[in-house]
Simulated assay, not measured.
Amino acid sequence: MASTFRIAVFASGQGSNFQTLVEATQNGRIDAEIVLLVCDKAKAPVVERANKAGIDSYVFDPKAYAKREDYELEIAAELERKQVDLVVLAGYMRLLTPVLVDRYTGRMINIHPSLLPAFPGKDAIGQAWEYGVKTTGITVHLVDGGMDTGAVIAQKAVEIRNEDSLESLEEKIHAAEKELYPEVVSWFAKELIHVEGRKVSVMQ
Protein backbone atom coordinates (compact mmCIF):
# COMPACT_ATOMS: atom_id res chain seq x y z
CA MET A 1 0.00 0.00 0.00
CA ALA A 2 1.21 3.49 -0.78
CA SER A 3 2.44 5.45 2.24
CA THR A 4 -0.03 8.31 1.68
CA PHE A 5 -3.67 7.47 2.37
CA ARG A 6 -5.37 7.50 -1.03
CA ILE A 7 -9.00 8.40 -1.70
CA ALA A 8 -11.30 8.04 -4.70
CA VAL A 9 -14.45 10.16 -4.81
CA PHE A 10 -17.53 9.10 -6.79
CA ALA A 11 -19.83 11.95 -7.84
CA SER A 12 -22.46 12.67 -10.50
CA GLY A 13 -23.34 16.34 -10.27
CA GLN A 14 -22.18 19.74 -9.05
CA GLY A 15 -19.50 18.36 -6.78
CA SER A 16 -19.88 20.66 -3.78
CA ASN A 17 -18.96 17.88 -1.33
CA PHE A 18 -16.13 16.84 -3.64
CA GLN A 19 -14.80 20.40 -3.51
CA THR A 20 -15.06 20.44 0.28
CA LEU A 21 -13.02 17.24 0.49
CA VAL A 22 -10.40 18.57 -1.93
CA GLU A 23 -9.98 21.71 0.15
CA ALA A 24 -9.77 19.65 3.34
CA THR A 25 -6.88 17.63 1.92
CA GLN A 26 -5.17 20.83 0.82
CA ASN A 27 -5.46 22.62 4.16
CA GLY A 28 -4.44 19.61 6.23
CA ARG A 29 -7.82 18.84 7.75
CA ILE A 30 -7.62 15.46 6.04
CA ASP A 31 -4.16 13.86 5.99
CA ALA A 32 -4.68 12.10 2.68
CA GLU A 33 -4.69 12.59 -1.08
CA ILE A 34 -7.63 12.43 -3.46
CA VAL A 35 -6.19 10.51 -6.38
CA LEU A 36 -9.29 9.90 -8.52
CA LEU A 37 -12.76 11.19 -9.36
CA VAL A 38 -15.19 8.61 -10.76
CA CYS A 39 -18.12 10.17 -12.60
CA ASP A 40 -20.93 8.77 -14.75
CA LYS A 41 -21.69 12.07 -16.52
CA ALA A 42 -19.08 13.61 -18.80
CA LYS A 43 -20.59 17.10 -18.57
CA ALA A 44 -21.09 17.16 -14.81
CA PRO A 45 -19.55 20.26 -13.18
CA VAL A 46 -17.64 18.03 -10.76
CA VAL A 47 -15.40 16.92 -13.65
CA GLU A 48 -14.26 20.50 -14.18
CA ARG A 49 -13.64 20.84 -10.44
CA ALA A 50 -11.37 17.80 -10.60
CA ASN A 51 -9.53 19.21 -13.62
CA LYS A 52 -8.90 22.49 -11.82
CA ALA A 53 -7.61 20.63 -8.78
CA GLY A 54 -5.26 18.50 -10.89
CA ILE A 55 -7.08 15.28 -9.95
CA ASP A 56 -7.43 12.46 -12.46
CA SER A 57 -10.96 11.59 -13.57
CA TYR A 58 -12.44 8.32 -14.72
CA VAL A 59 -15.57 9.30 -16.66
CA PHE A 60 -17.81 6.68 -18.23
CA ASP A 61 -21.17 6.38 -19.97
CA PRO A 62 -23.31 3.71 -18.26
CA LYS A 63 -25.43 3.36 -21.41
CA ALA A 64 -22.40 1.99 -23.25
CA TYR A 65 -22.46 -1.16 -21.11
CA ALA A 66 -24.86 -4.09 -21.07
CA LYS A 67 -25.03 -4.15 -17.27
CA ARG A 68 -23.69 -2.34 -14.21
CA GLU A 69 -21.22 -5.09 -13.37
CA ASP A 70 -19.40 -4.49 -16.66
CA TYR A 71 -18.48 -0.88 -15.99
CA GLU A 72 -17.88 -1.56 -12.30
CA LEU A 73 -15.21 -4.11 -13.23
CA GLU A 74 -13.43 -1.38 -15.17
CA ILE A 75 -13.80 1.04 -12.26
CA ALA A 76 -12.45 -1.59 -9.87
CA ALA A 77 -9.38 -2.03 -12.05
CA GLU A 78 -8.80 1.72 -12.05
CA LEU A 79 -9.16 1.88 -8.26
CA GLU A 80 -6.59 -0.89 -7.93
CA ARG A 81 -4.17 0.91 -10.26
CA LYS A 82 -4.51 4.01 -8.12
CA GLN A 83 -4.01 1.97 -4.92
CA VAL A 84 -7.15 3.48 -3.41
CA ASP A 85 -7.63 2.99 0.33
CA LEU A 86 -11.06 4.58 0.71
CA VAL A 87 -13.98 5.14 -1.67
CA VAL A 88 -16.09 8.19 -0.82
CA LEU A 89 -19.50 8.59 -2.45
CA ALA A 90 -20.40 12.27 -2.76
CA GLY A 91 -23.59 12.64 -4.75
CA TYR A 92 -23.04 9.53 -6.87
CA MET A 93 -26.52 8.70 -8.08
CA ARG A 94 -26.17 4.98 -8.83
CA LEU A 95 -26.63 1.90 -6.71
CA LEU A 96 -23.50 -0.21 -6.58
CA THR A 97 -23.24 -3.95 -7.17
CA PRO A 98 -21.16 -6.49 -5.23
CA VAL A 99 -18.41 -6.02 -7.84
CA LEU A 100 -17.38 -2.85 -6.01
CA VAL A 101 -19.11 -3.21 -2.65
CA ASP A 102 -17.47 -6.54 -1.82
CA ARG A 103 -14.01 -5.29 -2.79
CA TYR A 104 -14.31 -2.25 -0.54
CA THR A 105 -16.33 -3.57 2.39
CA GLY A 106 -15.57 -1.32 5.34
CA ARG A 107 -13.69 1.06 3.04
CA MET A 108 -16.57 2.67 1.14
CA ILE A 109 -18.70 5.43 2.66
CA ASN A 110 -21.65 7.59 1.68
CA ILE A 111 -23.35 10.69 3.04
CA HIS A 112 -27.14 10.94 3.15
CA PRO A 113 -29.20 14.06 3.98
CA SER A 114 -31.35 12.60 6.74
CA LEU A 115 -30.97 10.86 10.09
CA LEU A 116 -31.11 7.30 8.84
CA PRO A 117 -33.01 5.03 8.97
CA ALA A 118 -35.54 7.85 8.50
CA PHE A 119 -36.13 9.09 4.95
CA PRO A 120 -33.84 6.88 2.84
CA GLY A 121 -33.66 7.16 -0.93
CA LYS A 122 -34.20 10.17 -3.14
CA ASP A 123 -35.15 13.68 -1.98
CA ALA A 124 -34.60 12.95 1.70
CA ILE A 125 -34.71 16.66 2.58
CA GLY A 126 -38.04 17.04 0.80
CA GLN A 127 -39.36 13.90 2.49
CA ALA A 128 -38.49 15.27 5.94
CA TRP A 129 -39.96 18.66 5.09
CA GLU A 130 -43.26 17.20 3.87
CA TYR A 131 -43.50 14.85 6.86
CA GLY A 132 -43.21 17.79 9.23
CA VAL A 133 -40.47 16.47 11.51
CA LYS A 134 -38.85 18.97 13.86
CA THR A 135 -35.36 17.50 13.56
CA THR A 136 -33.61 15.98 10.59
CA GLY A 137 -29.93 15.93 9.70
CA ILE A 138 -27.24 13.97 7.92
CA THR A 139 -25.75 10.50 8.18
CA VAL A 140 -22.38 9.18 7.08
CA HIS A 141 -22.58 5.42 6.68
CA LEU A 142 -20.75 2.43 5.29
CA VAL A 143 -21.98 1.18 1.92
CA ASP A 144 -23.42 -2.33 1.87
CA GLY A 145 -25.18 -2.43 -1.48
CA GLY A 146 -28.64 -1.54 -0.18
CA MET A 147 -30.44 1.79 -0.44
CA ASP A 148 -28.85 3.76 2.43
CA THR A 149 -28.80 0.66 4.66
CA GLY A 150 -25.13 0.45 5.70
CA ALA A 151 -23.88 0.76 9.27
CA VAL A 152 -23.96 4.31 10.62
CA ILE A 153 -20.58 5.95 11.27
CA ALA A 154 -21.68 9.44 12.33
CA GLN A 155 -24.75 11.66 12.35
CA LYS A 156 -25.40 15.36 12.82
CA ALA A 157 -28.81 16.74 13.71
CA VAL A 158 -30.35 19.78 12.03
CA GLU A 159 -33.32 21.50 13.66
CA ILE A 160 -36.25 22.58 11.53
CA ARG A 161 -37.56 25.89 12.85
CA ASN A 162 -40.91 27.53 12.20
CA GLU A 163 -39.26 30.23 10.11
CA ASP A 164 -37.46 27.73 7.88
CA SER A 165 -38.37 27.15 4.26
CA LEU A 166 -37.44 24.11 2.21
CA GLU A 167 -34.65 26.19 0.67
CA SER A 168 -33.25 27.31 4.04
CA LEU A 169 -33.39 23.73 5.30
CA GLU A 170 -31.43 22.57 2.26
CA GLU A 171 -28.80 25.21 3.02
CA LYS A 172 -28.50 24.05 6.62
CA ILE A 173 -28.20 20.42 5.55
CA HIS A 174 -25.46 21.24 3.05
CA ALA A 175 -23.58 23.26 5.67
CA ALA A 176 -23.74 20.29 8.04
CA GLU A 177 -22.43 18.00 5.30
CA LYS A 178 -19.42 20.22 4.74
CA GLU A 179 -18.64 20.08 8.43
CA LEU A 180 -19.11 16.36 9.08
CA TYR A 181 -17.93 14.58 5.93
CA PRO A 182 -14.30 15.77 6.01
CA GLU A 183 -14.13 14.86 9.70
CA VAL A 184 -15.28 11.30 9.05
CA VAL A 185 -12.88 10.90 6.12
CA SER A 186 -10.05 12.09 8.37
CA TRP A 187 -10.93 9.32 10.86
CA PHE A 188 -10.37 6.73 8.14
CA ALA A 189 -7.08 8.34 7.13
CA LYS A 190 -5.94 8.13 10.77
CA GLU A 191 -7.16 4.50 11.02
CA LEU A 192 -9.49 5.35 13.90
CA ILE A 193 -12.54 3.45 12.61
CA HIS A 194 -13.46 0.10 14.17
CA VAL A 195 -16.39 -1.89 12.78
CA GLU A 196 -18.10 -4.77 14.55
CA GLY A 197 -21.31 -5.81 12.85
CA ARG A 198 -23.49 -2.70 12.67
CA LYS A 199 -21.58 -0.97 15.46
CA VAL A 200 -19.00 1.54 14.27
CA SER A 201 -16.63 3.07 16.81
CA VAL A 202 -14.15 5.92 16.50
CA MET A 203 -11.04 4.99 18.49
CA GLN A 204 -9.81 8.38 19.69
Results as ranks from 00 to 15, higher is better:
75 I>W: 07
76 A>C: 09
77 A>K: 15
79 L>I: 08
79 L>V: 12
80 E>G: 01
80 E>D: 14
80 E>V: 09
81 R>N: 14
81 R>C: 03
81 R>W: 01
82 K>G: 01
83 Q>D: 14
83 Q>P: 00
84 V>G: 02
85 D>A: 09
86 L>C: 07
86 L>F: 06
87 V>Q: 00
87 V>H: 03
88 V>L: 04
88 V>M: 10
89 L>N: 06
89 L>P: 06
90 A>R: 01
91 G>F: 11
92 Y>V: 10
92 Y>C: 08
93 M>D: 03
94 R>S: 10
95 L>I: 13
97 T>Y: 03
97 T>G: 04
97 T>D: 02
98 P>L: 12
99 V>T: 15
99 V>E: 11
99 V>D: 02
101 V>R: 10
104 Y>V: 05
105 T>P: 00
105 T>N: 04
106 G>N: 09
106 G>H: 12
106 G>I: 12
107 R>P: 03
109 I>G: 11
110 N>G: 12
110 N>L: 06
111 I>L: 14
113 P>E: 03
114 S>F: 11
115 L>R: 12
115 L>F: 13
116 L>G: 08
117 P>V: 11
118 A>K: 15
119 F>M: 10
120 P>S: 11
121 G>T: 11
122 K>N: 13
122 K>D: 04
123 D>A: 13
125 I>R: 01
126 G>Q: 12
126 G>T: 06
127 Q>C: 12
127 Q>F: 09
127 Q>A: 04
128 A>C: 07
128 A>R: 03
129 W>V: 12
130 E>S: 13
132 G>L: 04
132 G>P: 04
132 G>D: 03
132 G>F: 07
133 V>K: 08
133 V>L: 02
134 K>E: 15
136 T>H: 09
137 G>N: 10
137 G>S: 05
140 V>P: 12
141 H>Y: 06
141 H>W: 06
143 V>D: 08
143 V>R: 06
144 D>S: 10
145 G>F: 09
145 G>A: 06
148 D>H: 11
149 T>A: 09
149 T>S: 15
151 A>C: 03
152 V>A: 05
153 I>G: 05
155 Q>K: 09
155 Q>V: 07
156 K>S: 14
157 A>C: 07
159 E>C: 01
159 E>G: 00
159 E>K: 15
160 I>A: 02
160 I>Y: 07
161 R>P: 00
161 R>D: 02
162 N>F: 09
162 N>A: 14
163 E>Y: 11
163 E>L: 03
163 E>K: 13
165 S>R: 01
165 S>Y: 00
166 L>F: 15
166 L>H: 13
167 E>Y: 00
167 E>G: 00
170 E>F: 10
170 E>N: 13
172 K>E: 02
172 K>G: 03
173 I>G: 01
174 H>Y: 13
177 E>K: 05
177 E>Q: 12
178 K>I: 00
178 K>Q: 15
180 L>H: 11
181 Y>M: 05
181 Y>H: 03
183 E>S: 07
186 S>Q: 14
187 W>D: 01
187 W>C: 09
187 W>S: 01
187 W>F: 14
187 W>G: 00
189 A>K: 07
190 K>L: 07
192 L>W: 12
192 L>V: 01
193 I>H: 07
194 H>F: 09
196 E>L: 06
197 G>M: 08
198 R>W: 02
198 R>C: 02
198 R>A: 06
198 R>P: 05
